[in-house]
């Protein structure tokens, strides 16, 4: 298992000295997880493996842009994997967005750098919170993140009124926000 701090050290080692051993460690931990994440969206194993490989190569290229104060490694790699999934959708002929856009969301910004020290704790706390969500809430959140579905599509699939899906998402996000804001203040 890789702790958030160990993972951040590995990325910084890549940025500082193109450390291939650090990359191999990250790869062993994250490539299988990215692959599992991509497969959850209905992608076959072989393609998902390629996407995971591409995502980890992006981690290598962009290592210097990683800022442990702004996001945990899991969060950062998640955003890269999500971008790759969007690329995949584009290759399949569906409309897609410019994937570099997503990286700017996590780009360092001086304006609210003071908020940033909590990134590591935020991630750990979010992980705990997930365990506290009801099954109903967890399923809509998982579908939104893993299965490339808007809340409208989720409502159709679960045969629930859109309002119910929205209120479950709101409840889950509300719990997330409350718990995190309590810690920040």
């Amino acid at each position: 298992m890789l702790s958030p701090d160990e993972a951040a050290d590995l990325i910084e080692a890549i940025a500082a000295r193109q450390d291939r051993a650090a990359f191999a460690n990250l790869f062993r931990h994250y490539a299988p997880r990215v692959k599992a994440f991509i497969m959850r969206g209905g992608t076959d194993a072989e393609t998902a493996q390629e996407v995971a490989q591409e995502a980890l190569i992006m981690v290598w290229r962009k290592a210097a842009s990683f800022d442990r104060g702004r996001a945990s490694v899991a969060t950062w790699i998640y955003t890269i994997a999500r971008n790759k999934r969007i690329d995949l959708a584009r290759r399949a002929g569906r409309p897609a967005i410019e994937t570099e856009d997503w990286l700017t969301v996590f780009a360092p910004e001086e304006a609210d750098a003071d908020k940033s020290v909590l990134a590591g704790q935020t991630y750990t706390r979010v992980k705990e919170l997930l365990g506290g969500l009801s099954a109903d809430q967890l399923v809509v959140i998982q579908k939104a993140f893993f299965e490339d579905k808007t809340h409208t599509a989720i409502a159709e699939e679960l045969k629930l009124p859109l309002g119910t899906v929205k209120s479950r998402i709101r409840l889950a996000l509300g719990r997330l926000r409350e718990a995190l804001e309590k810690e920040e203040s």
């Binding site: 599992a36 996001a71 969060t75 998640y78 996590f106 935020t122 979010v126 997930l130 993140f145 997330l176």
Partner: peptide, 17 residues
């Protein structure tokens, strides 16, 4: 950013292929 952390936590907890 929090939602990104949520995505990261979900991915981390998803297990390994």
């Amino acid at each position: 950013e929090k939602l990104g952390a949520l995505g990261g936590a979900l991915m981390e907890g998803e297990g390994e292929a």
